[in-house]
Amino acid sequence: MNDDRLIQVTDLKKYYNNGEIRALDGVTTTIGRGEVVAIIGPSGSGKSTFLRSLNLLERPSAGKILFEGVDITSPKTDINKLRQKMGMVFQHFNLFPHMTVLDNMTLGPRKLLGMSKEDAEAKAMDLLAKVALQDRAGAYPNQLSGGQKQRIAIVRALCMSPDVLLFDEPTSALDPEMVGEVLDVMKQLASEGMTMAVVTHEMGFAREVASRVIFMAEGKIITDGAPDEIFNDPSNDRLRTFLAKVL
């Protein structure tokens, strides 16, 4: 299958307590290659659950997710293999504190992609240079600032040469003065054509960088469109209420 639909989600559901809580209640959408999709919505709307379902960190209760044409929810699929192509960046960075920055970045390529130490380190250093952190290669995560940690987390994911990057509120745990440096890296990636799905509270980022904005509430996609439509002319009541609160 060689089309530009990278991820196709069909009627995705995630229930807790036997359906009492419906975190995802029938989500259907498609993410194309090169798209930057911002997912916004009030807390508890299911946007993080949706994102985490895409690489099966959450196992959906029902529905189908195709990644590059392969059904990842099927028991026959080797999810570990597919996750190598889906980078993930977390709110709390989740760098490995017992390893240096360089080891954090080369662990995956060396153990999973079979790269030699030299090749993996060369690639890691290139990526570190891209986020202007090459001088911190030997540092441990706890010696870094929050913004630096998140930039390292992004390049750690990039070391695996993923086809898509999933961001789960990447700037929510940062001090305000560090948000910019992380968003700049994400902007740069977007301009290079990286496919990205970003759960975010940064409306500025969603408006400027995203090619598409999905607004979720109560486990459903309420509206889905270009940033201009979403922000300039919110037709939906719930979207309008939400934007009035966050903008």
């Binding site: 977390f90 989740n94 153990k111 994911a157």
Partner: peptide, 25 residues
């Protein structure tokens, strides 16, 4: 738990995540 998820999201299986990431810590 985030350490676990970080390992799994890179593509490590359960045992590899244990060996490289969880057990040393």
């Amino acid at each position: 738990q985030g350490q676990f998820e970080a390992g799994r999201s890179l593509g490590f299986n359960y045992v590899q995540t244990m060996i490289y990431i969880i057990i040393p810590q």
